[in-house]
């Protein structure tokens, strides 16, 4: 028998949440039975809520990175409403809610207060939904970036105002049906533009760290949170979190849908430091956008008419452009 060589193959590698074949030190935060469970059981998020999951993923990773010395400001939205119907709270972190528009500013204030009190050990996260971030809270957010306040802002992007009944936000994707962008007659659902890309706008503030992540890639998300917590100054993390209710997908398919968003190229996952892209998550098994769109009733109208079909082609073009722009498939790989 020849002498054993080091094995570099671990069955599921880091694709799964845990892996019994990997050393404990390199396993995910979520695989740890002692994880913080920052957002605990009993919350009132819908079945299969991606936002509830994304928030626990992100805050558990942050809690580990800063040894539990964390305070969180939360904008109004599902995440706040489903977690804290007074007097119940699901939070196992120091957590504060103020308004819909001002989470970034509250974060700024918390960071300033900690600085004044000399509590350099305590770190600050501000978080909210896409509506609270890319629309109504945007001025506060841009100010926080511009002043380089020591806050990590996390946006949980479910691509509409879910808590008030699925109204369009500027993060709602092309062609999606929402309560305010119905698909009637010639209307395509949401307009066929490419929305507002806040991660790229954040980069334009030249802040230390900007990243996108998804509930479909836990290890990537945890790594980014950990990295963000090791840096000071303004940081931004944009997490893709499917909403079964608003998107009209199966409650068991939340992660699958998020995975297809990334694998089709519609949701590019990357990171940037001081305005320069420094990393990208490569597509592993590229799929046409149809596979993503067809799981969601908010896009079902697109598959019923020839105009709709043409719009699907436009959405495919958006995905292709993302892939080219962010370099999401290796050079020379088949399209």
């Amino acid at each position: 028998m020849t002498s054993p060589l080091p094995i570099k193959f671990y069955q599921t590698g880091t694709f799964t949440v845990g892996n019994r074949l990997l050393d404990v030190s390199v396993r995910s935060v979520q695989s740890d039975s002692q994880r913080n469970n920052s957002l605990n059981s009993g919350h009132r998020a819908c079945q299969g809520c991606g936002e509830a999951l994304g928030a626990r993923y992100a805050l558990d990773a942050a809690m580990r990175a800063v040894n539990g010395r964390l305070v969180v400001a939360n904008a109004t939205g599902c995440l706040e409403v489903f977690s804290t119907p007074y007097p119940e709270s699901s939070w196992r972190v120091a957590w504060l809610h103020s308004l819909f528009a001002n989470a970034a500013a509250v974060g700024t204030g918390m960071a300033a207060a900690m600085k004044v009190k000399g509590r350099t050990d305590v770190r600050v996260i501000a978080q909210g939904g896409d509506g609270g971030t890319v629309d109504i809270g945007f001025a506060c957010l841009s100010g926080m970036f511009e002043r380089n306040d020591d806050v990590l802002y996390i946006c949980y992007d479910n691509e509409a105002y879910m808590n008030t009944g699925v109204q369009r936000s500027s993060a709602t994707p092309a062609g999606a049906r929402t309560a305010t962008t119905p698909a009637v007659g010639e209307a395509p659902g949401n307009v066929m533009n490419q929305g507002k890309n806040v991660p790229l706008i954040a980069m334009a503030h030249f802040i230390p760290y900007v990243a996108t992540a998804s509930v479909a890639d836990l290890r990537d998300l945890e790594t980014k949170v950990d990295k963000a917590m090791r840096v000071h100054g303004a940081r931004y993390l944009h997490v893709h979190v499917p909403c079964p209710l608003g998107w009209g997908c199966d409650t068991g398919d939340t992660i699958k849908v998020a995975r297809l968003a990334a694998e089709s190229g519609l949701y590019p996952i990357f990171e940037a430091e001081y305005g320069e892209i420094t990393g990208r998550r490569m597509i592993r098994k590229r799929v046409p956008v149809d596979e993503y769109l067809k799981l969601q009733s908010r896009f079902s109208h697109l598959f019923k008419t020839t105009e709709g079909r043409a719009r699907v082609a436009q959405i495919q073009a958006i995905a292709d452009r993302n892939i080219a722009r962010f370099g999401l498939v290796p050079e020379g790989a088949p399209a």
Binding site: V17, G18, A52
Partner: peptide, 15 residues
């Protein structure tokens, strides 16, 4: 089950 922790991780309700 081969104890990959996926169910433990992906549950939005820590159930």
């Amino acid at each position: 089950c081969f104890e990959c922790d996926n169910c433990f991780g992906v549950c939005p309700d820590n159930a």
